[in-house]
């Protein structure tokens, strides 16, 4: 097969008028649009920078299904600690059931939750075995639904303290500071 010089290959003796018009540029508006490379790269770089700034290496803290967390302004960053979730009357420690709150709700009295106590104590012992020679931080994060009664909160709080977790943190949804209420720093 012979090598032919590139060029137009439309055969003029075939009456394809609409093709002729397109090729000659006499047709409608072109469907190809040009894109400014500089603007596009600027946009991409800005997007990358924004996403990198908002990137969180620690990932998302798992929230128990059905737990509606309250909101707060004056918050601290999350830490890695056992999570005690309370939704309805069920207590979960790191996703595993650890008792329920029905007895507290019925009696309306502050009391220790034995199953939760044993679970947290077991985690504490495990931590001490896996980190020999280190001080136990004693931090636990409570993930409590917004409608749970204060007596349940106080009972879980006290139970955690008795199990060797005196630093109790309440998980909340962080909201930006409104600036109202009090003097600014």
């Amino acid at each position: 097969m012979t090598i032919q010089e590139p060029g137009r290959r439309l055969m003029h003796h075939i009456p394809l008028n609409f093709v002729q018009k397109k090729v000659a540029g006499g047709g409608g508006r072109s469907t190809n649009a040009s894109l400014s490379l500089t603007s596009m790269i600027d946009f991409l770089v800005v997007t990358v920078v924004f996403l990198l700034m908002t990137f969180s290496a620690s990932g998302e803290t798992p929230t128990q299904k059905g737990v509606h967390l309250p909101k707060a302004e004056n918050t601290l960053d999350m830490i890695d600690a056992p999570i005690v979730a309370i939704t309805g009357s069920l207590i979960m420690v790191d996703g595993n059931p650890a008792g329920n709150t029905r007895a507290i709700e019925d009696s309306k009295r502050l009391q220790r939750i034995d199953e939760l106590f044993n679970n947290l104590k077991g985690k504490r012992e495990l931590w001490k075995q896996t980190h020999p020679g280190k001080d136990f931080p004693g931090v636990v994060v409570l993930q409590i639904d917004q409608d749970v009664q204060a007596i349940v909160v106080k009972s879980v709080f006290q139970t955690a303290a008795f199990a060797g977790y005196p630093n109790v943190s309440f998980m909340v949804n962080s909201i930006p500071k409104s600036g109202g209420g009090g003097e600014k720093h």
Partner: peptide, 10 residues
């Protein structure tokens, strides 16, 4: 959604 915490001391 950024979770945070408020601390309490037993």
């Amino acid at each position: 959604t950024h979770m945070s915490r408020i601390n309490a001391d037993a």
